[in-house]
């Protein structure tokens, strides 16, 4: 069974009286432990698709199963629960909480899962070690470089060991050197821990690292390399 199973999924918005078909009758199936890039021009529906896969939004039409569970008709609270238990997010702008240091940022999803303080700290330290930032655990985001901040964000996404890690333009704010380092790190993590990575990107460099590239146009899958 596929980890993510989207059947004729649509998500439309109204913008200035005009209906925008951000995602339009899209079919997509993603297996466990895939390392996949979603590419396409601006407005092709990449971010909307990511929001749907991450249960940040729910489809207007169609069926979207995550780990066997139909998410199309779930309440907000149930979608929050799926995000908490099954999904990790990596954002373009890192989105770390500025008043928390690295390890505290990584602990956040564990806190929302209700882990004890010791357990949180232990698992957050493991996650930081995986991204090679153990020695920066007590540093605030403002004291770290962009590449380091993004690695903290990755550790945060991985800390709760979610089945799916969704990344929205994770290399968008990084230079070439940091971009390849980051992609290698993601690839290693995917290989070592078997989590599914879905990376939305404009960056052609990313597709070189992934096993599969899904191209979107006008809210539909234009091509799928798998």
């Amino acid at each position: 069974m596929a980890l993510i199973e989207a059947r004729r999924v649509s998500k439309h918005y109204r913008l200035g009286g005009q209906e925008i078909k951000a995602v339009d009758e899209l079919d997509l199936s993603i297996d466990r432990a895939e390392f996949l890039a979603v590419m396409g021009p601006s407005g092709s529906g990449k971010t909307t698709l990511l929001n749907l896969l991450g249960c940040l939004a729910s489809p207007d039409k169609g069926s979207l199963k995550i780990d066997g569970e139909e998410t199309a008709a779930l309440s907000k609270a149930m979608r929050t629960k799926i995000r908490r238990e099954k999904v990790g997010f990596i954002f373009q702008e890192f989105n770390l909480i500025p008043i928390l240091n690295a390890v505290e940022n990584v602990e956040l999803p564990l806190k929302y899962q209700g882990a004890t303080k010791d357990e949180r700290r232990r698992r957050a330290n493991i996650a930081l070690e995986r991204v090679g930032l153990s020695e920066r655990a007590k540093h605030k985001p403002s004291q770290m470089s962009g590449g380091e901040q993004q690695r903290v964000a990755i550790a945060r996404a991985l800390a709760a060991e979610p089945a799916i890690v969704l990344a929205d333009e994770p290399t968008g704010e990084l230079d070439t050197e940091n971009t390849s380092k980051l992609l290698e790190l993601l690839k290693d993590l995917n290989r070592d821990f078997g989590q599914t990575f879905v990376i939305v990107t404009h960056d052609p460099a990313v597709s070189g690292f992934t096993n599969r590239v899904v191209r979107l146009r006008d809210g539909k899958v234009e091509s799928d390399s798998a």
Binding site: A77, I97, L108, P109, Y112, A157
Partner: peptide, 12 residues
């Protein structure tokens, strides 16, 4: 920040 927290699993 609140959006991030909600995304990573903070409930109401």
């Amino acid at each position: 920040e609140i959006g991030v927290k909600k995304a990573i699993g903070a409930d109401t």
